[in-house]
Structures are given as structure tokens and as C-alpha cells.
Design a protein around this nucleic acid. Structure first.
Length: 425
RNA sequence: GUGGGUAUAGCUCAGUUGGUUAGAGCGCCAGGUUGUGGCCCUGGAGGCCGUGGGUUCAAAUCCCAUUACUCACCCCA
């Protein structure tokens, strides 16, 4: 138990961290190209923030939050998603006073107390994007385009983009009445959770997976057909901009997000390369959220993209043929004097911006070469008594198998020449 | 919270109808003469067979319980 990570958590080991660097690097680049800047918010927040923003009828708030009391008797919760903290920061620092929109992104761990399964952990990582203060549909499309473009640049295939509109507060009232009327006769046939949803959040019934509910829902009036004039235009505009961006999508009137704050545009990006948890990215517009959290009336759009799921797709599609960092040079030493000299030398080589390493476990010369070969190091430099005497070093190119002679004081220049661009300073 | 599956070496797995010191491949370590990797060869280390109980002369193997992992439901990234 001591040496076992808590349920639903995973170590990212040295042998795999380069994969994370790879996708994080892509994320930073693409966010920058879309004009989004990084924001970092705390991993925990006051519990009320999530109750308010995510919504108290949601599963997240009702049963999935890691909540505890701190020593000052405050209720604290580990962030179950990324948007709430960003909204809080936006309000707290009056970012709405800046020229709008405010476009931000983040990479953050999130925490939900659920039973783990494929593509689902209790601690997982999310790339999220939020844009505040822009009402135009071009911003909805930009957000979706950003996500699609990232996935595309990573070489992912076979994704489906589903979009829908769930309208605004104005169109939702009358629509709920319509649903209730429609369901009236079928109320008893609904599954247990749906009969609860019926009162609190009837929209969610559309999303129910139970066969009986699916049947009932087939002819149910769709939100999409009952949007108010403004929302209808917004949805049409969003599609127009998506077309202009070259984003392929399908309209799926049944998608409803599980977080309460969404309005108008909602979307998900789905992959067949995942298990049952097939959504890699989900998001939408949340025009009421900033106000709900105590800020000025401010529109917003955003999405969350699951990094573990992203990695799963990349692995499944074998699109992760990247290699980790390999060392530039390894010093194979014979004897204590040589070891000391190598230790000195290694420092000056590192100062020049190369990655250099040497033996620390007392291996034989043969074993040192074996070890260097396994590491994939580019060059191995041998230092023994001969080299100490003459000042001539033997430097072997491990890929070519060729060995040359380099004067000890010229080693840095030699590497710079051989490795070209890696010479930093 | 509910259901299914699985637990043997660091990893992937064998282990016959219960029968003595539990195996393989890979990985790891050391060698294969004098200071040189990848292939090959030799040797070595490393397992209370998830944990606890039961049946039996005898349990990795059969039974029960428990825990962990895993997949799925609910929901979500």
C-alpha cells in the first residue's frame, strides 16, 4: 500500500515524459498562433466556486469532487475541471477591464472521484481554452478550429466533430415546457435518473443512454428546432465560420453537456480509437457564467481536451513515433585519474550547452560502451592514461562506428561542428 | 454507487488430472584475455505464485473471503 499510487492516479515516468513534452510543445505553439496566452490557477479552490459554476445538479458536484476542510474550516475542492478557476481569476483581477476579448489557455491536472476505467482516471490532465468578452460566432468557430487544428497537427485521424446549440435562458423556458408536455404521457416509462431530470434539468433526458428512454426520446421536440431568433442566427453564423475555417462537423441535436453553465454552442470531438470514453474534447459557450460567479455580464466560450485520452489515441494510431532526448556525449573512463579528468571536462562541455554524461557505477570499459549504446548517445569519448599523457582523446561516433582523435581543448569545438545547431551559447 | 474479468520474476506469460528444490523469453548484472557498444555465447541475481482462511498426507493448482488491478454502466476530458 505504501509503494502504490492512489487509485486512479498514474506516474508519468522518465521513459514517457518526452511524449508529454511533445504534445505540450504543440499546444503552446498552437495557442500562441491563435492569440491565446497561458494562465495558471491553483489546483484547489473554494468549494462554492465549483458548486456555483459547474452546477449543483451535475454528477461532478453531487458525487465526484475531492472536497476537504482546511485548518481554517474552509471547504476546499481540488479542481474537477479547468474553467471555474479561470473565470474566478478573470473576475478577481478585473481582466474584463482589459481590451476584450481575453483569450487564455491552460494545461492543468483535474480531479474527479470516479471509478477508473479506460480513458478515465481520478487525476487527469486537461488542455483548456477560454475566451471571454466576445459574443460573435466567429469566436465559437475559432475555439473549435483551434482544437481541430491541434489534433490535426498531431496527425490524428478519424475524428468526428459534433456540434449543437442548447439555446439561451430565454429560449430554454418555453422549450422545457414543450418537453414536459411531450413527456407527460410517457413519464412512467422513463428511467429513474431521468424522472429526476424531468423536474430539474429536462434537457439531459435527451442524452440518456437507457434503451427505454432512447425510444421515448426519438420524437421529442429538439432544442435546435426551438431556438429563439437570436440563438438561431448565432448557430447559423457559427456553422458559416466553421465552413470558412474548413472544419468538418456534424450536427448532433442530442448532445447536451454535463456541466450546467453551457449556453448556445456546445460541441464534442469524438474518436473511435478510445474505449467507451470516446470524447477527447468537449466545450461550448457559457454566456451566463461570469455573471453567475459574481462578475459583470460577460460572454465566454471554451473547451477542455483530455491529454491522457489524446495520448491514448496517438498510441492507438501509432502516431507517436518520436524519440526522447538522447545525450550528445558519454565519457568512458579507465581509472580514477581519468574519472576525475572526465568529471572536469564534462562540466565545460555542459557549459557549452551539450548534454554529457559519464560512468558513476564503476563499470568496465566494455560495459561503459554497452551502456552508452543503450542510451543512444551520439559520441563516446574514451579517457585513460594514454589520453591523459598525450592530451589526444578518442571520440567514437556511435551511429557510424568510426573513431577519431580530438585534442582535449578542442572537444567543445569538435562537438559544435558535428552537432551543428545544438550549440547554444 | 452497480456489474464482469484478472492476480505466478522488473516486463510479457507458461505451469499438464492437486505431487518433492516454480519455469521461459525479454530486461538487469558479470564474463567471452591485453582499453570499445549493437549480433552471438556462458554464467548470475531476482518470486512467501496478491493477502487471509479452509479442504487434503500434499495446494501456484480446489473452495470461501478480502484487497488490488482492469473493463463496462452512470457521467465526463
Amino acid at each position: 500500500m505504501l509503494a502504490r499510487a492512489p487509485k486512479g492516479t498514474k506516474d508519468i515516468l522518465p521513459s514517457e515524459s518526452h511524449r508529454w513534452h511533445y504534445i505540450e510543445d504543440k499546444i503552446h505553439k498552437i495557442a500562441k498562433s491563435y492569440g491565446y496566452r497561458e494562465i495558471r490557477t491553483p489546483v484547489f479552490e473554494h468549494t462554492d466556486l465549483f458548486v456555483r459554476s459547474v452546477g449543483d445538479t451535475t454528477d461532478i458536484v453531487q458525487k465526484e469532487m475531492f472536497t476537504f476542510e482546511d485548518k481554517g474550516k474552509r471547504s476546499i475542492t481540488l479542481k474537477p475541471e479547468g474553467t471555474a478557476g479561470v473565470v474566478r481569476a478573470y473576475i478577481e483581477h478585473s481582466l474584463y477591464a482589459d481590451a476584450q476579448p481575453t483569450k487564455m489557455y491552460y494545461i492543468t491536472p483535474c480531479y474527479r472521484h470516479e471509478r477508473p476505467q479506460a480513458g478515465r482516471q481520478r487525476e487527469f490532465h486537461q488542455f483548456g481554452v477560454e475566451a471571454f468578452g466576445g459574443r460573435e460566432a466567429s469566436l465559437d468557430a475559432e475555439i473549435i478550429s483551434l482544437a481541430v487544428s491541434l489534433l490535426d497537427k498531431l496527425g490524428i485521424k478519424g475524428l468526428r466533430v459534433n456540434i449543437n446549440s442548447i439555446g439561451c435562458a430565454d429560449c430554454r423556458g418555453p422549450y422545457h415546457e414543450k418537453i414536459k408536455d411531450y413527456l407527460g404521457s410517457n413519464l412512467d416509462a422513463l428511467c429513474k435518473s431521468c424522472s429526476e431530470r424531468y423536474e430539474k434539468n429536462p434537457l439531459r433526458i435527451l442524452d440518456c443512454k437507457a434503451e427505454t428512454c432512447k425510444k421515448i426520446v426519438t420524437d421529442i421536440p429538439l432544442m435546435l428546432d426551438n431556438l429563439c431568433g437570436e440563438c438561431k442566427i448565432h448557430f447559423e453564423d457559427t456553422k458559416t465560420y466553421l465552413d470558412a475555417a474548413g472544419v468538418e462537423y456534424q450536427i448532433n441535436p442530442l448532445i447536451v453537456r454535463g456541466l450546467d453553465y453551457y449556453t448556445n454552442t456546445v460541441f464534442e470531438i469524438i474518436s473511435d480509437s478510445l474505449g467507451a470514453q470516446s470524447t477527447v474534447c468537449g466545450g461550448g459557450r457559457y454566456d451566463g457564467l461570469v455573471e453567475e460567479c459574481g462578475g459583470p455580464k460577460t460572454p465566454g466560450v471554451g473547451f477542455g481536451l483530455g491529454l491522457e485520452r489524446l495520448l491514448m489515441i496517438l498510441e492507438a494510431q501509432d502516431a507517436l513515433n518520436i524519440i526522447g532526448d538522447i545525450g550528445d556525449i558519454y565519457f568512458a573512463t579507465i581509472g580514477d585519474r581519468a574519472r576525475l579528468k572526465a568529471f572536469e571536462l564534462i562540466n565545460t562541455i555542459r557549459e557549452k550547452g551539450f548534454s554529457a554524461d559519464m560512468d558513476h557505477v564503476g563499470r568496465s570499459i566494455r560495459a561503459q560502451f554497452k551502456y552508452a549504446g543503450r542510451l543512444g548517445v551520439r559520441f563516446v569519448c574514451t579517457i585513460g592514461d594514454n589520453e591523459l599523457e598525450t592530451g589526444e582523446l578518442r571520440v567514437k561516433d556511435m551511429a557510424e562506428g568510426t573513431e577519431g582523435s580530438v585534442r582535449i581543448e578542442a572537444l567543445g569545438d569538435y562537438l559544435a561542428k558535428q552537432l551543428g545547431g545544438e550549440f547554444d551559447e
